[in-house]
């Protein structure tokens, strides 16, 4: 047989040695060993990490919590849930990150058990973990978490419901779309994309005049995605939003909706100073596909910005092809 020892990073790990080093009196040595275990697959490594996550030294606990991200199921979930309560913030943060990697339904019980924990950071991490499991059993707890006092928890709770894409989550998401917190509203309105247009129309119309532009932007995007005919008048109104970003997304939504009524208002924006918006307007006019847009598109075809010109040329082609 060929000589080969010493050349290859041995796939058979020496667990006896690792376990010995994990029991060293020197905390730094233990953390070095924990990191090595973390890079090792297999049930033996999982066992050692679950053991190390209760180490007296925070650096060791952190390495163990990080390493457990590669394992799934009840045992690692329990260990991570415990580490989430760690007095050391870095350990808890590592545990939260690893909890978000869980995929199997078996991992749910320890998460569900913590969903009403007094610390908001714990509740946030738990909601984030549950979201990815897409678990029916998380529906009710998710619903309750939407009433949490902490907005960051409510934002994650939106995720639990939205990932489930369940019709019965709609009333709660609609309600969350008028939450007092901007991030919750933004998440909730975007999350309604799985529902038919009628279900989200009320929320869309409310959010079109939201005080924060990011929510208004999310609302116009949603109106386009679900083809909310009932939002056309509101979208035309959004073409004069104080944020050009919202105007641009509203234009694109009106294009998707083929809203002929929007052509004059869109045409008014063809000379807007920010070229990003001119580009969106030119695209929308093409998507609407009506000859009334041609004069505006001719103007756009001579724009100083090449992207606007390109889109205008494509749009003129689109209008002409729908005509013939």
């Amino acid at each position: 047989m060929m000589k080969q020892s010493g050349f290859f990073d041995e796939p058979q790990v020496d667990f006896v040695d690792l376990e010995r080093r994990l029991a060293s009196f020197d905390a730094a040595e233990r953390s070095v060993a924990a990191r090595e275990v973390a890079e090792t697959p297999g049930p033996e490594a999982e066992r050692l990490l679950i053991h190390a996550i209760a180490d007296s030294d925070a650096a060791v606990r952190r390495e163990a919590a990080l390493g457990l991200e590669q394992f799934d199921g009840l045992a690692p979930a329990e260990a991570l849930a415990q580490a989430l309560l760690d007095e050391n913030a870095a350990v808890a943060e590592a545990a939260a990150a690893s909890l978000a990697e869980l995929k199997s339904p078996e991992a749910a019980p320890p998460l569900l058990a913590l969903i009403k924990h007094p610390r908001a950071e714990v509740r946030i991490a738990v909601c984030r973990g549950l979201r990815n499991l897409r678990l029916e059993a998380a529906f009710q707890p998710g619903l309750e978490a939407l009433g949490d006092a902490d907005a960051r928890v409510r934002r994650e709770a939106v995720g639990i419901l939205a990932y489930l894409k369940a019709t019965k989550a709609l009333p709660a998401l609609v309600k969350a779309a008028s939450d007092e917190n901007v991030e919750v509203r933004r998440a909730a309105i975007s999350a309604l994309a799985f529902a038919p247009a009628e279900a989200s129309l009320g929320s869309v119309l409310t959010c079109l005049s939201d005080p924060h532009w990011l929510v208004r932007e999310a609302a116009v995007v949603l109106a386009g995605r679900v083809k909310a005919e009932g939002a056309i008048a509101g979208l035309i109104n959004s073409l004069s939003d104080e944020f050009w970003q919202v105007r641009g997304k509203a234009a694109l939504a009106l294009g998707t909706l083929k809203a002929v009524a929007a052509i004059p208002a869109l045409g008014n924006l063809i000379g807007f100073p920010i070229s990003n918006l001119r580009k969106d307007v030119a695209a929308a006019l093409g998507d609407i596909g009506h000859p009334d847009a041609l004069p505006f598109l001719e103007t756009a075809a001579g724009d100083i910005d090449p992207d606007v010109r390109k889109i205008a040329r494509r749009s003129i082609q689109l209008v002409e092809s729908t005509r013939s």
């Binding site: 080093r21 020197d26 730094a28 040595e29 953390s31 070095v32 060993a33 990191r35």
Partner: peptide, 9 residues
Amino acid sequence: CIADKGCTV
């Protein structure tokens, strides 16, 4: 640095 403790990260 804990290289003297075996760390080579």
